[in-house]
Design a protein around this nucleic acid. Structure first.
Lengths: 164, 164
DNA sequence: CACCTTCTGATACTACAGTCTCAAAAGTTT
DNA sequence: AAACTTTTGAGACTGTAGTATCAGAAGGTG
């Protein structure tokens, strides 16, 4: 059972991330200071850093990613890789609730867009290659595992670029 | 004809970049301060910022890129795109001189590696797509132009990842 | 050489991220 | 309600990027 204290902490954390993402979207990541985020969440500056060790971590922190991981693992064994990835994404977002989904989309957008966060593991070549490797029982260093991951990144980049 | 003043400026600029790249490679980008760079180049902090508006610009600044552009444009009309890109890279580096080439390689490495610099236009999807478009007389927004650019990025990522 | 123009160093300043400390406040347990 | 534990706010402090100013040095020109 969740104590009042735990609920408050969860709420403060969510508030911080929610207001931060809102401000980032409105004014940009760099132009938004930690003070502004803390003020918006009605919390002191020090408290911000108690919840997130850095400004970057606030964007990096993701409670959805584990779900995605699970959905990916839950795909039946024979599923082609691209389908498995697509299904995992679809399933995860489907069971998410509208506000949560909107937030997650902003977060992902930032993780892609903001230079300081570009190495975000969720979208890194290494991350994708690792998933491919475990899903297919191959080794990460194999050439076509890497190429497959590269192609997926490339395709996503292209798709994103076309959709503006 | 180049005046003494101009030669000194060029030299100061080159010194700053050279020492900076050396320090970046040795200690990392973030861990190297502007003061250290200025000191290494035997120049005051203020002078650093006269030559480069920011620490990032020092890495971004590139006198080789125009050469690459020219080499790419110089490829005969019928050359397949991948060959054209490869040839342009090879030709440019071939006529560069060893120290210059080493520096350029470090610079490119940093531009790829350091998060703050990730959006470097030379390696962006948009940049590659634009080159493809002009080289083939197609429109940048066409799907397969974008996909081609995406695939090239993906392939480069994969190749880089395998080579450590 | 004398004058003019441009570049430089020294220094002080602002803004922001991140750390630290301590006392007060809020939550929890008996 | 009292004692205990955890969280919070306030504020001071550090380190670094980037800006502003101004006097003096170095380069260029008559």
């Amino acid at each position: 059972m969740t104590s009042l204290r735990e609920r408050k902490k969860a709420r403060t954390r969510a508030d911080l991330q929610r207001h931060a993402l809102r401000l980032f979207r409105a004014n940009g990541y760099a132009a938004t200071t930690v003070d502004e985020i803390a003020a918006a969440a009605e919390v002191s500056r020090a408290t911000f850093f108690r919840y997130f060790p850095s400004k970057e971590d606030l964007v990096r922190y993701d409670d959805v990613d584990p779900l995605m991981e699970a959905a990916f693992a839950a795909q039946p064994a024979g599923t082609p890789l691209f389908d498995a990835v697509r299904n995992a994404l679809r399933d995860t977002f489907a069971g998410l609730g509208p506000e949560k989904r909107a937030l997650e989309e902003v977060r992902m957008e930032l993780a892609r867009t903001v230079p300081e966060l570009a190495e975000n593991k969720q979208f890194s070549l290494a991350g994708i290659a690792a998933r491919i490797a475990t899903a297919t029982g191959r080794d990460v260093v194999e050439l076509d595992v890497q190429l497959c991951a590269g192609a997926m990144i490339g395709a996503r980049l292209a798709a994103r670029s076309l959709s503006q």
